[in-house]
């Protein structure tokens, strides 16, 4: 077998065209996950009755199953169930007209939310309680103390862990092809199929993912460094 480098170079722009789709899926999922994980971490920390049990079950289910399986469930089973329900109530909504991207967002954020929740909860707990007491004693209310003192430090602690989840989410977008969303991996599969040069197409996206993830990690490291700049103990 010889490597068709010419094909690789020609296919590359075709594949790179889909990088925004990959990024959009990942970014969308991460943003949705941020909102819900914040809420869920709050529920766990405040031990909100009933809701905290539900969140805990959700966390175990997500952490205990492969993401590809979660996607199949969401993509294959959920729509049929929902459609049956919509037909029953005569809502006139056709579930199969919903853009496939939404299933991808849902599946990806479901997983990211679970990991973010854990990271945020642990990070908030890691901030020394004495600082909260000091905040109260200068006259801050609990919400102000949380936003001004606790949260900024918790973000610095959570970020390295969340960075892993973000990278995992970018990688997991490659599974969105299973839900008929064409992103980078999907594009490679299609191009490979048309030319029967799968190997070259996959080698292309191999490098695309490497560079993408390297760039994301680099940016998040810089952000983290800036967030925890106060820790350096050099007088």
């Amino acid at each position: 077998m010889t490597l068709d480098t010419k094909f690789m170079i020609e296919a590359l722009p075709e594949i790179i065209r889909y990088v925004p789709v990959t990024l959009r899926l990942a970014l969308g999922a991460v943003l949705i996950a941020l909102v819900f994980s914040g809420l869920f971490a709050f529920i766990l920390l405040k031990k909100v009755p009933v809701l905290d049990k539900i969140v805990k079950v959700y966390l175990s289910v997500i952490r205990g199953t492969p993401i590809i399986l979660q996607m199949f469930v969401i993509y294959k089973i959920a729509p049929s169930v929902l459609q049956a329900y919509f037909t029953k109530i005569h809502s006139g909504i056709d579930i199969f007209e919903i853009d496939n991207s939404w299933y991808a967002y849902l599946a990806l954020s479901l997983s990211a939310t679970a990991f973010f929740t854990e990271a945020i909860r642990a990070a908030i707990l890691s901030v020394d309680k004495g600082q909260l007491e000091a905040a109260y004693m200068v006259g801050m209310t609990a919400p102000v103390a949380f936003w001004r003192i606790i949260l900024p430090q918790a973000i610095g602690v959570a970020l390295p862990i969340m960075c892993n989840t973000i990278v995992d989410t970018v990688k997991a977008t490659s599974l969105a092809f299973a839900m008929a969303v064409t992103e980078v991996t999907g594009a490679a599969k299609i191009l490979g199929g048309m030319s029967l040069r799968y190997f070259e197409a996959y080698l292309d996206i191999f490098f695309v993912y490497l560079i993408l993830i390297f760039a994301i990690e680099f940016l998040l490291k810089r952000l983290e460094k800036w967030l925890v700049r106060y820790r350096k103990a050099t007088a």
Partner: peptide, 26 residues
Amino acid sequence: GFVFQSYNLFANKTAFENVYEGLVSG
């Protein structure tokens, strides 16, 4: 006002901000 045994300064704030934050946010 409270002065703690273990200082309990806000770790993410400079010396100035530690004093300033109390005045503004507290």
